[in-house]
Design a protein around this nucleic acid. Sequence first.
DNA 1: CGACGGTATTGAATCGTTTCATCTGACTCG
DNA 2: CGAGTCAGATGAAACGATTCAATACCGTCG
Lengths: 344, 344
Amino acid sequence: MAKQAVGIKDVAKAAGVSVGTVSNTFNRPQSVAPQTRERINAVVQRLGYVRSESARQLRSGSSRIIALLVLDMGNPFFVDVARGAERAARAAGLGVMVCNTAQSPAEEAEYIELFIEQRVRGVLVTPADPSGRTLAPLRRQGIPHVMVDRLAEESQGCSVSVDDVAGGALAAGHLLAQGHRRIAYVSGPQHLQQIKDRRTGALQAIAAAGLPAETLTEIPTRHLDIAGGRDAAARLLGLPERPTAVFCANDLLAMGLQQALFAAGVKVPDEMAVVGYDDIDFASATAVPLTSVRQPSADMGRLAAELLLQEVSADDETETEHEHRHVILQPELVVRASSMYRVR
Amino acid sequence: MAKQAVGIKDVAKAAGVSVGTVSNTFNRPQSVAPQTRERINAVVQRLGYVRSESARQLRSGSSRIIALLVLDMGNPFFVDVARGAERAARAAGLGVMVCNTAQSPAEEAEYIELFIEQRVRGVLVTPADPSGRTLAPLRRQGIPHVMVDRLAEESQGCSVSVDDVAGGALAAGHLLAQGHRRIAYVSGPQHLQQIKDRRTGALQAIAAAGLPAETLTEIPTRHLDIAGGRDAAARLLGLPERPTAVFCANDLLAMGLQQALFAAGVKVPDEMAVVGYDDIDFASATAVPLTSVRQPSADMGRLAAELLLQEVSADDETETEHEHRHVILQPELVVRASSMYRVR
DNA sequence: CGACGGTATTGAATCGTTTCATCTGACTCG
DNA sequence: CGAGTCAGATGAAACGATTCAATACCGTCG
C-alpha cells in the first residue's frame, strides 16, 4: 500500500526536462528559465515530490544536522540550552538532534559513534566524561565540536562555559553576608567539573571573608535531581552542628531539599537559608521562591551553536585557519525569599 | 586539515579484499571466513572507518531514525514521554529525534517536511493541529505515524492516548467528594483536545453528583505554563463568588497558581484546594505537594514507539496488512496535601 | 576421475541526488 | 554572413554503501 517513492527522475520525465534542470530549479533557480521553473514546480506539487536528504548528503559528504548532547534532559536548564542552540541552528538552516547522556560516559561514547555514522555537521556537547576521551573519535573524523558548560582545555576545541568558580563564590558570599557561619554544600558526582568549581568558588569566598575552610561542609549526592535533594536534607539535618544555610549544586537538589525541610518543619529561610544553582523556571515557582545563581542558559546554547557554525564554515573555505575560542560567561545571583533572613 | 574520509573501498584495498566482503563482514559476519573477518576488523580499527549512514539509507530507502514531535519540551511530562519512546526505539536499534512544536501547527508542518526529507522510519506526534491536516504529507509518503496523547480518528493511524475525560472526572469527583461546590477549571488553548476532554470529564462528574453545570467556572489561559498559572490565580481571586477549589489542566499551571495563591496569602488547601494534571516530578516537590492526575507518560511513549515499530515491520513484509490500533490508557489520581481539607 | 556441493569471495549494478563540462539555439555585431 | 556571446538545458560521472548473480576453490562421493 505504501506509495512508491517519487524521485527526481520521475519529476524530470513528467515535466519533460532533464534531471539536471530539476536539480537546478532547487539549487540555483536563477539559472533556469522562469517558465520552465514554474512547470517543474507544478509537477513537484502534483507528484508530492520531496528531495531525499540522504542522497544529498551522500553527495555533499555531511548532513544538515548538528547534534546536541546534554547531561540530563530532565533538567530544565538543559532544555533552555537546547532551545538557544536550536534557534541559532535553524536560523542557519540546520536541524538539531538532541540526545541525553544521563551523565554516563558510555552513553556519550555510543551517541558520538551514532553521530559519526550520521556524518553530522557538528556536535555540541556537555561532556559526561571528564577526560574528553570520548570526543577523540570526533577529532579523528574532523567533525567540529564545541563544549558547552565546560571550559575546554587547550586545543580540545571551542567551548562556551559559565564561570562556575565565580558562581560558587557568589552563592557562598551571599550567605556569608547574611551572617551565616556554618554552610553546607550539597554537591553531586565528583567527576563533574562544575561540581568541583562551584565548591572551589565557595571556599574562595569563605577564605576571602577570613573564615576557616571548615565553615563549609560538603554533602555529596549520587544524582543531581529532586530525589537527591530529599536525601541530602536528611543527612543535612543529621549533622552534629547543624548548618544554618545550604548551597545546592543545582536547583533540582534545592527543590527536593526545600520540600524535605518543609516536611520536617524546618522553616526556610529562618532556620535554614537555601541557595540553588541554574535559576530554572521552577525555582521561582516554589512556595518560598528560591534564591539561585542564574546561568545564561539559552545564550550559552546560542553562542555554542554560533561558534560551531563558524568553525564549520571555516572548515569549508580551508583558507582561513580556524582558531579555537573559549567564551566564558558570568553567572548572576538572583536573590529571592529562600535566603533572606526575616527582618529582626 | 580535516582528515579525508575513509570509505569502504579504502578498507577493502588495505585488507586486500573486495568491497563486497567488507560489507558482508558488517551485515552477515557468518558468511565471511573468520580469519578474513578479523583481518578486516583490524583494518577498520586502524583506519578508524565508520559506515556512512547516508549511503546505507540511500540504498535501503529509509533512515534508522524515528521522529518524536512534542507540544512543549519545557514540560517534564513530554520529557517523560520522550524517555519512554527513546528506550523502546533504541532497544530496536533506532535513534530518536525529538523536536518541539511549541503548540504551533506551522512549526509542526515545517518539522514534518523535514522528517520526510530525512526519510525517517516513522513519526510519533502529539498533534498541535487538531485537524490532522499537517499529517497528510506523511500519509501521502506512506510514512508510518502514531499519535501520542491523542485519540486518532478512524483511519488516521494508530494512537496511544490517555482517557482525558476519565481524568477530568477523577479530578472533579475528588474535589466534589471533599465537599467543594464551586470549582474553577483553569484551562488552556481551546484547540487542544485534551483541554476539552478534561472539561467534559469534570462536567460529567458534576452531573453525576446531581449538581448544576454552573458549579464549574472555566478560566482559560493562553499558555499551559507556570506564568499562565500565575495569571489565572489573579483572575480566580477576582471572581465574584470565589470558588473553593481549582482544577488545573496541567501541573505547570497548578504550580504557578499555587505560588501566586501563596503570595496572596490564600492558604492551600484550607482556603483553596488545588488539583493538577500530569503528575510531573516537580508537582510532588512543591511545599504543599500537589494532588494530580497521573498519566503513564513513559508508558505512553514506549507503547507508541512499539506500535510504530510494529507498523514499520508490517510495511516491510507486505503480506500482513497493518491494522490501526488505538490504545487508551487510564489515568490515576494521586492525592497529596494540596487538596485535602484539614481535619475539622 | 569427473560430477557435485558447499563455502568464501568477487564485482557490477543500484539507490537519488549534485555538479560540471558540454551542447544547443537564438541573438548581436562587425 | 560568419564569428562570438550568452542563457538554458543536457546527461554522465560521482558520492559510499548494499545486494546478488556469478565464480573460484576445495573436498567428497560414486
